[in-house]
Design a protein around this nucleic acid. Structure first.
Length: 286
DNA sequence: TACTAACCTGTACG
DNA sequence: ACGTACAGGTTAG
């Protein structure tokens, strides 16, 4: 297999693949543009010109243009499976999300599936988010922490959250009370951040790793869900000692440690490519 | 400490 | 149409 050329990668973002890779849930295609909710902002991206416009004056750099992508891809493609995933989905990118939206999104994701997560979050925005007009269309921004913290349980339940309603409410309260401070956590190290997130009701190992990878600048975070376990068993069964049938808390951290040692400081990027590849192989819906 | 059942809901399958 | 299986991670026992 000939080596990949990473020189022009920044030009080759594939929106469809990036949005449909289990990291974001509030993006929809309308005509020739993709529209996405990112916290208090709405982003529009033309699929052909890739021109980005936004509801706010200063949109966040959601595509992580400040990452040294060439260096990262070269680093993670030392692993041959990851390299083949990159070859299949060269336009896949890791996104930088609004932390509160990401936090609630993955709390809601627990014991659910992508289709349902999208539905629940959409209803949450419609019920609790501010309605705005942008690009001649109507959008609902992601709710503020205090709106969810003060929400009536019955209203949360009407969004289809089920038993997750309690988690969403408690987690939002922890943000309002500043027990959870995203700006602090962005600058804290992996272990501190993880420990802090794990105290929140409704957040376990996997959800914490998703929040850290997708919104808190922890590129080493490698969320282990059932798809990644499948990937590890399929391609890496001899590589990792901690691979067992069940993932207890202890097993999770042992395995995560082994994974970081193997995949390196950009393990989270590797995870995103592997996840995308395996879901596509199994023809899963987004 | 390790394992398991229960959790709420939407979708797919027979 | 109707039940039953499945999708999923966290918590509590």
């Amino acid at each position: 297999m000939k080596p990949l050329l990473f020189e022009n990668f920044s030009q080759q973002i594939n929106l469809q693949d990036t949005i449909n890779s289990g990291q974001v849930f509030l993006w929809e295609k309308n005509g020739k543009k993709w529209y996405g909710i990112n916290g208090n902002d709405v982003l529009a991206i033309d699929q052909n010109t890739r021109k980005i416009t936004s509801f706010s004056e200063n949109p966040a750099d959601i595509f992580r243009n400040d990452d040294n992508l060439k260096k990262i891809l070269e680093n993670i493609s030392q692993d041959k499976i990851v390299e083949s995933a990159i070859q299949r989905f060269p336009g896949l990118r890791l996104l930088r999300q609004d932390p509160f939206q990401c936090y609630i999104s993955f709390i809601v994701s627990s014991n659910s599936n992508i289709q349902k997560i999208k539905l629940m979050l959409k209803k949450l925005c419609k019920k609790f988010g501010r309605k705005v007009r942008f690009d001649g269309k109507e959008f609902f921004l992601f709710p503020e922490p205090k709106q969810l913290a003060n929400a009536q349980t019955k209203d949360l339940l009407s969004c289809g959250l089920g038993y997750r309603a309690k988690s969403v409410k408690n987690a939002s309260r922890d943000v309002v009370s500043e027990k959870i401070d995203f700006e602090f956590l962005k600058n804290a190290d992996y272990d501190t951040t993880k420990k802090t997130l794990l105290k929140v009701y409704g957040i376990g190992d996997k959800v914490a790793d998703c929040i850290m990878l997708f919104s808190l600048e922890k590129l080493v975070a490698f969320p282990l869900d059932r798809w990644m376990l499948r990937v590890l068993q399929k391609y890496y069964s001899k590589k990792f000692q901690s691979l067992g049938k069940t993932l207890t808390e202890k097993k999770y951290s042992m395995l995560h440690e082994e994974i970081i040692n193997y995949f390196g400081p950009y393990a989270g990027y590797s995870q995103q490519f592997l996840f995308k590849m395996e879901r596509e192989i199994n023809k899963k819906k987004w």
